[in-house]
Design a protein around this nucleic acid. Structure first.
Length: 263
DNA sequence: ATGCCCGGAACGTCCGGA
């Protein structure tokens, strides 16, 4: 089965691009981020017509995440545990086709040194705690989304120039490693250990996409059972080259097999 | 050293993005 994560930067502005991509790539499960819309404005009809069920957590103007699936969606949770005061629509999780999947829009955190950066780090700590719970449940799971972290300098076009960016800060990368060291697999790096200039985001400004100056901040993290089933992962740059593109492009994984009967 | 480009809300121009 094929799973995709894509920060669409407004589902309303991007609907034609999203529908075209779903038709062409035909993924089974899709994690969307930055809907920038309340659920009432989510295009349930158009996306349903393509054969997808949808679980949505919307918010006016900012954030917003969704899970689309060609399989039934069950057991939806619409918050990351650990802070009852947090109103941002950044986390949705559900079960589909025997897998627990989460669509994650991790806080950007800029500028560094403000409460936005501490919010990011606190959010990452909550994610580590929740991932630990998921691991203890032994249910196979996939965390997909815009993590707003470049795991290493290999994942950013200009590490020196971006050293003060919250997506490159050592504190952000340390929190990312804390997550990975729980026993999760960065799907892209498992398949492409040394590939340079492989990015999922390019700034709209300064001709960044034309120059290939981007960052890899959209990721799939896999539980051990899912990592065993990983057969492919890549970044699909085509949607970023379109008119009226999002500044992010889809990342996909291919998962082989199904639940294995060990008896 | 700063802004470049977008989308949203709104109709000024700012905020957020990364």
């Amino acid at each position: 089965m094929k799973l995709v994560t894509w920060n669409v930067n407004s589902i309303k502005a991007r609907l034609p691009n999203v529908l075209e991509y779903l038709r062409e790539a035909n993924p089974d499960v899709v994690m969307l981020q930055e809907l920038k819309a309340e659920e009432a404005a989510f295009p349930h009809l158009e996306i349903g017509d393509l054969g997808y069920n949808a679980a949505v957590l919307g918010q006016k103007t900012y954030n917003g995440v969704a899970i689309l699936s060609k399989f039934p969606i069950a057991d939806v949770r619409r918050d990351l545990p650990g802070d009852d005061e947090d109103e941002h629509a950044r986390y949705i999780e559900a079960e589909t086709n025997g897998i627990r999947v989460a669509s994650i829009y991790l806080p950007n955190g800029n500028p560094v040194g403000t409460d936005k950066f501490s919010y990011k780090l606190a959010w990452m700590k909550r994610l580590v705690l929740h991932a630990r719970e998921l691991l203890e449940s032994e249910e196979p799971f996939v965390l997909g989304g815009d993590f707003n972290v470049t795991p290493t300098d290999l994942d950013v076009f200009n590490p020196v120039g971006n050293a003060m960016d919250a997506v490159c800060r050592p504190e952000s990368r340390a929190a990312w490693r804390e997550l990975v060291y729980l026993g999760l697999t960065d799907a892209f790096r498992a398949i492409h250990p040394d590939e340079a200039r492989a990015y999922s985001y390019w700034d709209y400004r300064a001709g960044s996409f034309r120059k290939g100056d981007g960052m890899r901040i959209d990721h799939f993290l896999l539980s051990p059972a899912m990592a065993d089933r990983l057969v492919g992962c890549d970044i699909d740059k085509k949607p970023r080259a379109q008119e009226k593109a999002s500044d992010h492009t889809p990342v996909w994984i291919e998962i082989g097999g199904g639940p294995v009967d060990t008896l």
